[in-house]
Design a protein around this nucleic acid. Structure first.
Lengths: 219, 219
DNA sequence: TTGACAACATACTCGATAGTATGTTCAAGT
DNA sequence: ACTTGAACATACTATCGAGTATGTTGTCAA
């Protein structure tokens, strides 16, 4: 049985984080493919050759699992860009680097980011499945904080005269639509190496900064 | 009863198109707010102060209703841009006009366009709820035809040297992400007149053509 | 005026699924 | 060795919602 194979791999004390991560990965793939409410926990369990019992051992509800995937996706984003924000360089270069890091992260963690997108939609429409308001607002705050990082860099690059936008809300939304695009339209090829993925990311970044009025060419 | 009020309005023979449209509008709003599988037909019915019986009188299934909303949304798009495509003008000007028309249409028919987006996702992941493959592929073809209109104008403007992109697939996807952005982030304000909406649309178009390497200013 | 039918509303069925209750196994501590 | 509890699996319940079956009403045509 596949279950037996898995159990020797994970069945050790304090491996619960590993187990949760395996569950989250299965859940992210299912949520991405069929959406939150269309995916049953039995599907998620089947995807990792397990059972619903295991999921409910780690999560109190379907919503809690979803929120954990959401949170993990956001944390992946933060980890990708925060080191770059501390670097000392011209704002426009920091902008390019941050955009690139975001796109690369988004492509690599496509399923998780798709769930993040669904979560944002749910927050927007107030149709979250959970009742834990604390959790919800905390995640909304996370999202805002992440967005603010980009807003700040935009404003700095604008002050330097390297880019020009009219309404920062619309500009920021457009940039996000652009660099989050791969979540929707990118389909990984078999045997596609890192170089090719970087080329896609570079092109996305180029379009994003062009959108902001950047005139220079890319390195 | 609200039902009585409605019946005097629509209850006449051959008003079935009107009735279907009212159902579709309710469905579009529900699907937008909660997603296809999370919305029950009882909700849709309640939104138009009616019952599930009425919906099943006009549609054989939930999926068929969804597909009708999808198709209607796509037709709205075609109607918005096709007259412009026939105009005789420089490709770059036609591009601007078509983008503007699309954004205006998208903002006006936000709920329907959100459903279109969900439909595209479903096609992409092959998780359509319906079994009518004919209908499905027909809609996919519609979507492709619509996309091709933009692709053609892009190629013409590129040949004229007014824009420059590297990979047309990525460029086209990025443009669509940008001009479809309002579907996601636009929230209509009370008492917001046509001018303000046009201003938003103009800014979206500006970012979209800048993204493509356009250097001129907007009129 | 009556009967036929469109356009619904009402009242059900039945399958899918979130959640629960309980059983099983294994690893570590004593 | 035996006990405990974490980490599951299995078996069940309860609800929700898609789809159906049937009832009701108004309208038009003959």
């Amino acid at each position: 049985m596949a279950t037996a194979a898995r159990s020797t791999k994970y069945r050790r004390q304090s491996d619960t984080d590993l187990s949760r991560m395996e569950i989250m990965e299965g859940a992210a793939l299912c949520f991405e493919a069929r959406g939150y409410s269309a995916t049953s926990l039995d599907e998620v369990a089947a995807r990792i050759f397990s059972t619903k019992g295991r999921i409910y051992h780690h999560y109190a509800s379907k919503a809690e699992l979803f929120l954990d995937v959401y949170r993990t996706g956001m944390l992946m984003n933060f980890q990708a860009i925060e080191p770059i924000l501390e670097r000392d360089m011209p704002a426009i270069e920091r902008l390019k680097a941050v955009l690139k890091a975001h796109v690369m992260c988004v492509i690599r963690t496509k399923a998780f980011q798709n769930v993040v997108g669904q979560g944002v939609d749910m927050l927007r429409h107030g149709t979250m499945p959970a009742n834990e308001h604390a959790e919800l607002e905390q995640l909304a705050a996370l999202r805002d904080a992440y967005s603010d990082h980009f807003r700040t860099v935009l404003e700095q690059a604008m002050a330097d005269g390297d880019i020009a936008y009219a309404n920062i809300k619309i500009a920021l939304n457009s940039v996000f639509m652009c660099i989050n695009g791969p979540i929707v339209w990118f389909t990984p090829r078999k045997g596609q190496d890192e170089r090719e993925i970087e080329a896609v990311a570079d092109e996305c970044v180029l379009y994003a900064i062009r959108l902001l009025g950047y005139r220079g060419e890319m390195p």
